[in-house]
Design a protein around this nucleic acid. Structure first.
Lengths: 137, 137
DNA sequence: TTAGGTGCAAAACCTTTGCCATCCC
DNA sequence: GGGATGGCAAAGGTTTTGCACCTAA
């Protein structure tokens, strides 16, 4: 894969935050350094970077995907109020894939565990307001 | 929630299969018994049924969601070749939500565990062809 | 030089929504 | 009758794609 500063900026934008940004959020962030970048380029490179194993994609509802700069095994929590995705410190089970594969005959490459509920901030706001998802959160 | 035969047929279509169908697949199936039903109605009722706890929604990539007629706790496997979703017999951990909630302060309502890889059928086809996802599979 | 990357805009895709007719209770 | 529901079609949002131009190697 050939170098491009667009792709480097996109990778950095996802890696330099813990907010698991959406494609649109990455686009907004990268435009600070490369004002002329296009949204299509962001999508194209996010996809390439996921395929190359540099990023992880987190599937979301309604076609909104989020991206995770950390490819190490870890689990997520998704807030049903604000949509934010947080990392969970639950220990990652490295043996699980192999155990299930042996029992089922499926070829298993990875697994993902996601919790859902209400984050502490949205609990404090008693669910009345929808809180934002700042890129730097 | 008031009765309608459209909603009943939609619920039955998801419940009477193990294929975790998409909205479009449900639409195709329900049209056999109610030819005049509209896709909007299918989406509207799938959403209502999920909110009512009658069905589970499985988030997917690229905006395609799937639905699960079984609301008991169980885990899934998604084939990266054909997109099919299968149930996994891994024992469901009912205490996990409470444990993580106690440790993190998050309000946790549920969790989902999904494995990814290649299903036995796609392994047999050596990944060359994309296999279909029949509603009755 | 040239294969790969970008920007732009249109298209594709899935899902939601508004409106009026219809149906359950 | 009255409010919930359906059918239809248009709108909405996200992602992909075609094409001409540009750029890293």
């Amino acid at each position: 894969m050939r170098y491009s500063r667009q792709r480097e900026a996109i990778l950095a934008a996802v890696r330099n935050t813990t907010s698991h940004p959406t494609a649109d959020s990455v686009y907004a962030h990268v435009r600070n350094s490369i004002p002329g970048i296009s949204l299509g380029t962001v999508y194209r490179n996010l996809r390439l970077l996921v395929e190359a194993g540099e990023l992880r994609a987190l599937e979301g509802p309604g076609g909104v995907n989020r991206y995770d700069g950390c490819t190490n095994g870890h689990y997520h929590f998704r807030c049903d109020v604000c949509g934010r995705v947080l990392d969970i410190d639950e220990p990652f089970d490295v043996d699980l894939d192999g155990e299930v594969a042996a029992r089922t005959g499926l070829e298993i490459r990875c697994h993902s565990l996601e919790f859902r509920g209400v984050c502490t901030e949205c609990q404090a706001q008693s669910g009345a307001r929808i809180c934002g998802v700042p890129h730097e959160a």
